[in-house]
């Protein structure tokens, strides 16, 4: 096999455009899916992914592997851009128009799955107690602060904090139970060319 191992993070740090293309091929669907999950629009989700990749390319030299994997980093950039978008005036106006017809924010429902290997898992994650999932989703996908969650759900701050803790613990259990390939994480570090 004529393949050369190249470190993905090194490629990103050196602003290697091939590394960016590889990152897209590997995680484009997750990044797009997350953007879509947050903004509920295919057009906007595409804009966000494009913006995210430009940002990843520009900030590549600042990426610090010690602080997390490339995937986490790229995911956070995309997530933050999407959350920022939902806070813009234009988005709020648009959302208001959409809300007349449909209730678009449903934090407990999953979007359509495209990865067959995750179908079994989906039902399992859905078993996560909605009260934990709700809190985590509000923070992770809507960019809420703890006090905003407290206000929205009308529960004490201490409860918000404990739900975050328990929710994350439950989430870990779900994934370890299903043994989602640890390779996914390892793969963040290396990719093949040629």
């Amino acid at each position: 096999m004529k393949a050369s191992d190249i470190n993905l993070s090194l490629g990103i740090q050196q602003q290697d455009q091939k590394a960016l293309a590889f990152l897209y091929d590997k995680y484009g669907d997750v990044l797009y899916g997350i953007a879509h999950k947050i903004v509920h629009s295919e057009d906007l989700a595409q804009d966000i992914v494009q913006e995210a990749f430009i940002k990843i390319w520009k900030n590549g030299p600042n990426y610090d592997p010690k602080k997390g994997t490339i995937f986490t980093w790229a995911l956070n950039i995309t997530r933050n851009l999407a959350i920022d978008k939902t806070r813009s005036a234009a988005f709020k106006k648009r959302q208001h128009v959409l809300e007349i017809g449909t209730k678009i924010d449903n934090t407990t429902a999953f979007s359509v799955e495209n990865r067959p290997e995750h179908i079994g898992l989906k039902s399992q994650v859905n078993e996560l107690d909605p009260k934990y999932k709700e809190v985590i989703d509000l923070i992770y996908f809507r960019g809420y602060t703890q006090s905003e969650v407290k206000e929205l759900l009308g529960i004490p701050l201490g409860t918000v904090k404990s739900r975050i803790r328990i929710g994350l613990r439950e989430l870990r259990k779900v994934f370890s139970m299903y043994r989602v390939p640890i390779l996914l994480i390892a793969a963040n570090w290396t990719f093949f060319l040629g």
Binding site: V30, A45, Q46, F71, V180
Partner: peptide, 27 residues
Amino acid sequence: RNALDQYAQQYAKQPPQVLRQRVIEAI
């Protein structure tokens, strides 16, 4: 963090084919 990353992966969604080219050209 891995749990959160994997959680995020549940939402993976196939983007339109044209997006790849758009992204590469933008870069």
